[in-house]
């Protein structure tokens, strides 16, 4: 009885620290971790072959680029915006990288990341300077960047050279943990610190929470928005490089397709509400892993892909429903 009261008290204290008003809201806000844990336990118990280290490694390889685009997505959603262009920016980054191969692997990677940054800067320019709704500007770039990627490579796949940097990114791993996953987690840590401790991070939360108030408080709204979308593009560029390295080729019709949807779903499931003003980087990473494991579980249990998609959609809706009060 008293133990229960004590734990209740601790929960309430936790809730206060997290800025929520009740233990229920706390549980909802952190449901992504609970759901992830439950899913892992179910898989370990029932899914044949889930314990295989190759499965885990593959999962993490697939998760790394999604984590990167989710980070950028969480920042834009934190400003009460959105970035639909991240998937296409990945495709463009991979295409530009393929064209720059002659200059060596490092230069090619830099060119790819630069292409993603360029998409982000254009997007941010449209949003910050011209006051265009980010849904529209990033939708335009979703189409334009994909089109440019296909045009650059004539719509065909270009193989990346074997060995060197591309092998490090494409197959390199420290025991079961791929190097790209380590990089993604380090970047996530940096972004989390940035959101929590920098003027830039604070400013983007202000803009998302109340743009009119942010303007009156003298926050550099335009500059912050430009940088947020630029960061999202930059991270998408790196994600495109990772995805192409994993595939061993730059394929403008394949790299990054529909990644924006997973990034938005992961951000929101992770506790970054679409209404802006709050960003949860750790939650976003957990959201990505959750969706990846879910997808893998469907495949490994031989669930037809069409049904798997429907189930995934139902899962996302259920997760968001549980979350809605926590947001």
């Amino acid at each position: 009885m008293s133990a229960m009261a004590a734990s209740r008290g601790r929960l309430a204290a936790l809730a206060e620290r997290a800025g929520h008003d009740s233990p229920l809201a706390l549980a909802r806000a952190h449901s992504v971790y609970a759901a992830f844990a439950v899913l892992i336990v179910i898989d370990l118990l029932f899914t044949p072959g889930f314990r295989n280290v190759f499965v885990i490694r593959n999962l993490l390889f697939a998760a790394a680029p999604v984590i990167l685009v989710t980070l950028g997505q969480s920042l834009t959603i934190g400003t009460r915006g959105i970035d639909l262009s991240v998937g296409s920016a990945m495709g463009l980054a991979a295409a530009v990288m393929a064209l720059a191969l002659a200059g060596g692997a490092w230069l090619a990677v830099a060119a790819g990341v630069g292409a993603g940054l360029a998409v982000g800067l254009i997007n941010g320019g449209l949003v910050a300077a011209l006051d265009i709704n980010p849904l529209i500007s990033s939708l335009a770039l979703l189409v334009a960047a994909r089109g440019t990627a296909e045009a650059l490579l004539d719509g065909s796949r270009v193989s990346l050279p074997e060995g060197g940097l591309f092998d490090v990114l494409g197959i390199g791993a420290v025991s079961v943990i791929p190097i790209v996953a380590i990089i993604a987690v380090i970047v996530a840590g940096l972004v989390a610190v940035m959101v929590r401790t920098t003027v830039f991070g604070r400013s983007l939360l202000f803009i998302g929470a109340n743009k009119a108030a942010a303007i009156l408080a003298g926050i550099k709204v335009r500059r912050t928005l430009l940088l947020v979308y630029a960061a999202s593009g930059l991270l998408a560029g790196l994600a495109g490089v990772f995805a192409a390295a994993r595939l061993g080729a730059s394929d403008p019709n394949y790299i990054g397709v529909n990644y924006e949807l997973d990034a938005i779903a992961a951000s929101v499931i992770g506790g970054t509400p679409l209404s802006g003003g709050r960003v949860s980087i750790l939650g976003g990473v957990a959201g990505v892993l959750l969706l990846q494991v879910l997808g893998a579980s469907f495949i490994m249990n031989d669930i037809n892909f069409s049904y798997a998609q429907i189930l995934k959609a139902l899962f996302i809706v259920a997760a968001l429903y549980l979350q809605r009060a926590g947001g």
Partner: peptide, 30 residues
């Protein structure tokens, strides 16, 4: 409509205009 930042804390709301004075190299001094 033009004052508070809902979802954010008292401290974050209060310090909103003073960030340049509170920060060094872009990092806010807690």
């Amino acid at each position: 409509a033009e004052g508070i930042f809902p979802k954010l804390s008292v401290a974050e709301n209060l310090a909103a205009t003073a960030l340049p004075a509170l920060a060094r190299f872009g990092f806010i001094s807690r």
